[in-house]
């Protein structure tokens, strides 16, 4: 059974259908994959400049907007220097 139980209280990366990438601590979830993220930050990627992190605070994201939830390896994430990363934003979902 694919459940989100293992991610509770862990730092996760959420990719949304519009291509947004949000990192935060997963405080809770439900059967429809609605997710509560605390201490969340949006990571905006661009080809010209490094990653911009926008603090968002407490966030409730609707499950139907979620593409993927990744468990962040905090040590690995800390070692990455976001200002050096150049990348296109993630493409949005199209059906």
């Amino acid at each position: 059974m694919a459940t989100l139980q293992g991610y509770v209280d862990h730092r996760v990366l959420l990719i949304l259908q519009d291509g947004r990438a949000i990192v935060g601590v997963m405080a809770g979830y439900d059967q429809k994959s609605n997710v509560v993220l605390s201490d969340s930050k949006e990571r905006v990627y661009s080809v010209e400049e490094g990653v911009e992190e926008i603090p968002l605070g407490l966030y409730l994201v609707k499950g139907d907007q979620i593409v993927l939830i990744g468990e962040l390896d905090e040590a690995l994430d800390q070692s990455v220097d976001l200002s050096t990363i150049r990348a296109e934003p993630i493409p949005p979902i199209h059906y």
């Binding site: 949304l16 519009d18 405080a27 605390s38 968002l56 605070g57 407490l58 409730l60």
Partner: peptide
């Protein structure tokens, strides 16, 4: 799509 609520709420 999403809701933003005050941090203190949690």
């Amino acid at each position: 799509k999403y809701l933003r609520v005050p941090d203190t709420l949690l």
